[in-house]
Design a protein around this nucleic acid. Structure first.
Lengths: 231, 231
DNA sequence: CGCAACATTGAGACCAGTCAAGCAAAGTGG
DNA sequence: CCACTTTGCTTGACTGGTCTCAATGTTGCG
């Protein structure tokens, strides 16, 4: 975790992040308030329980949004991709953990200042509304995923969702992709155990639906079969 | 389902709905564009698959937001209470069903006109952002609920959530309340079967944690015991 | 009253969790 | 460079919770 100044010119998500709708002057203003931070895989970006003082945007890498209940079980509520927002906007305390899944970079700002800007700049509020609705959509997609009864249907749906996300073309799914999550993290997302994830992948491979390439590589051989499980 | 003109003066949620932030002139304008509609329990308010042409606010009663997958299984993604929004704002097609859970009333507007107003009136966009964030929060709470492994923990958490929602005071949960859902709907929300819901309620009652009063009445006798299950 | 929808209860099958062992890859330190 | 540890993944045997199928009760409404 190391902090550097923000330089929007070299920002890979300058066109997609919420800040894109701001005037250059406003963005310069924000730039001076915030900082660019690097994280290594597994490092905490925002910790639940702390007062909500920071928010920002993921610039590169990937992160997970998770909650931990009293018995120590962690569940992943969302994945955050570059240009995604970090921190529960307009909340008083951070109630969820944000953790780097891979080496990542983030732009972080004082939440109060950022929120104030949203009240002053209609375009920013409007853009944040779009972002919130997109996150809501994704959250409901995840509910769809995990409310499937059978573990193999959940995993099949997740694999197909990753294939879709990994594809460059909008119409075709990627046939080969890397899982951005460990088995344990997949298990946390789907509400099953690591062993079930592992066994189910083994069965998918034995049935010819896919081929595992290393620990995280997946090559889909029969995505229709997986789609059939999803229902 | 019967349509009448909108009269904000007698609207029970005039102070809480998103329209509350509009000027009287803007509200009058909207009033003429929209209509007030009544629904009986079970009637469809918005149907998935249709072009997204209508959005609005639930005025009284209760509704469910649900998706139906190809094998006909319905899953409830959210409950909508009075002042809650109806319809996926800024979407091109309706992808979720909205159904009345009890006899209900809704204010409905042409989506394009309402969305245009959000672009013209910063306060409305800002208010809708707050609403979207609230829904996102609730959606993630539901994920928390249904990702609990054991069925009794899920049901206990749901009962406690209803007790909280039914309480008038902010600090205390209601000890007695009516379930707004049938067993089947509870099962759909929690991702279990009707039978499991029924058996689990029976066990809770036998263990002295609650008492069933009719089909939908619940009296909590030992909410701490239920809280213990949740973890 | 009788039907229809909703709810409860039981018996058996099966999927997934738990516990436990072993393997592979990557990193660590002498 | 090699022993050692750590971390993540796989596999097996066993157990238990939940689903399925089926029958019976209950409630509300025409």
């Amino acid at each position: 975790m190391s902090a550097t100044p923000i330089v929007c010119d070299r920002c890979p998500v300058a066109d997609r992040a919420v800040c894109a709708v701001l005037s250059e002057a406003d963005r310069d203003h924000l730039t001076r308030l915030g900082r660019r931070q690097r994280y290594r895989r597994g490092e905490t970006i925002l910790a639940a329980g702390h007062p909500h003082s920071t928010c920002g945007t993921l610039v590169s890498g990937a992160a997970k949004l998770s909650s931990i209940d009293s018995d120590g079980t962690e569940r992943i509520l969302a994945l955050i991709h570059p240009a995604g927002t970090l921190g529960q906007m307009f909340a008083t305390t951070e109630r969820l953990h944000v953790t780097a899944l891979t080496d990542s970079e983030a732009c972080l700002f004082p939440a109060a200042r950022f929120e104030a800007l949203a009240d002053e700049r209609p375009r920013l509020a409007r853009r944040m509304l779009a972002e919130a609705l997109r996150e809501l959509e994704e959250s409901r997609t995840l509910i769809d995923l995990i409310s499937k009864r059978q573990a193999d249907a959940r995993l099949a749906a997740l694999l197909l969702a990753f294939a879709r996300a990994a594809s460059t073309a909008a119409c075709h799914d990627a046939l080969r992709f890397e899982l951005p999550l460990t088995r344990g993290e997949i298990a946390q997302m789907l509400g099953v155990t690591i062993e079930t994830v592992s066994r189910t992948l083994t069965r998918f491979e034995r049935d010819g639906a896919l081929r595992r390439e290393g620990a995280h590589g997946i090559a889909l051989l029969d995505s229709a079969a997986l789609g059939g499980l999803v229902g």
